[in-house]
Structures are given as structure tokens and as C-alpha cells.
């Protein structure tokens, strides 16, 4: 189902997400060797572990290393950027933004993907 809205809902999600990522990158810039407390205490990689290293490599254009550090966050960032471009293009062409497919179904799908990804990377 392809819904259209007059609200730029993509940007409402994309801008805070990108702000969060840049905040993490800023912290990582000043404390380059900081490690997640959960990882150093329990040895478990949580779903976001390696996200900063992945983003750093993605910004350098090294997609292979980005996917190696955190495939989930890398593909998520790429998906958000591609969807933002698509939504803005549809605004230019048809006058309306493409609505994000956010509902309980997609959220459950995302959460299942997060859980499966976390279990697989800790095996």
C-alpha cells in the first residue's frame, strides 16, 4: 500500500536519527577508544554495538567494513537516506510526500529483525 501525506513524515524521522548519529560520532571523536559498558562487562554485543564504527566507515565510503561492524545499522541508515530521497522526489513530481509505512506490523517486523540479528551475532 502506497499512502501519500502532505506532512514530511520522513524528515520528522530522518532528522532526529541523523542528529543522534552525529552526536554519537562527536563523542567518538573525543573519546576514540570508548567501549560500550555492556560489552566490557558482559561480553554481549547488543543490537547497536559497532554502530559508530560502521557509521564512520560508511561516511568514508567503505561499505564492506561498515556492513562488517554492524550490518543492521548500516542498512538502516541507507534505507532512511534512500526513502528520504524517494519521498522528496515524489513531493517534487506529484506534490505529496510518500508516507512512511509505519504501523504495528512493520514495527513487529523491525523488532523481530533486531532480535534475530542480536542472537545471530552473539552465537
Amino acid at each position: 500500500m502506497r499512502a501519500e501525506t502532505s506532512r514530511p513524515s520522513v524528515l520528522i524521522i530522518a532528522i532526529p536519527t541523523l542528529a543522534l548519529i552525529s552526536a554519537v560520532l562527536l563523542v567518538q571523536h573525543y573519546f576514540p577508544q570508548i567501549s560500550c559498558p555492556i560489552r566490557s562487562q558482559t561480553g554481549i554485543d547488543c543490537p547497536g554495538c559497532g554502530g559508530t564504527r560502521a557509521t564512520q566507515h560508511l561516511l568514508k565510503g567503505d561499505l564492506k567494513m561498515a556492513l562488517h561492524f554492524n550490518a543492521f545499522i548500516t542498512s538502516g541508515i541507507i534505507a532512511i537516506i534512500l526513502f528520504s530521497i524517494w519521498s522528496l522526489l515524489s513531493k517534487l513530481l506529484t506534490g505529496k510526500y510518500t508516507a512512511l509505512p509505519i504501523n504495528l506490523k512493520t514495527a513487529c517486523l523491525a523488532l523481530t529483525m533486531i532480535i534475530v540479528f542480536t542472537v545471530l551475532r552473539n552465537l
Binding site: P47, C49, L111, I114
Partner: peptide, 16 residues
């Protein structure tokens, strides 16, 4: 919707 999207971001964003 806001709550759910931020909640999923919270799960992924680890220690913060």
C-alpha cells in the same frame, strides 16, 4: 507512532 519509533531507536542505541 512517535513513541514506537523512538522506542525502537532506544533499543538499538545501546548505552544511551
Amino acid at each position: 507512532i512517535t513513541s514506537m519509533v523512538l522506542g525502537i531507536i532506544a533499543v538499538v542505541s545501546c548505552y544511551f
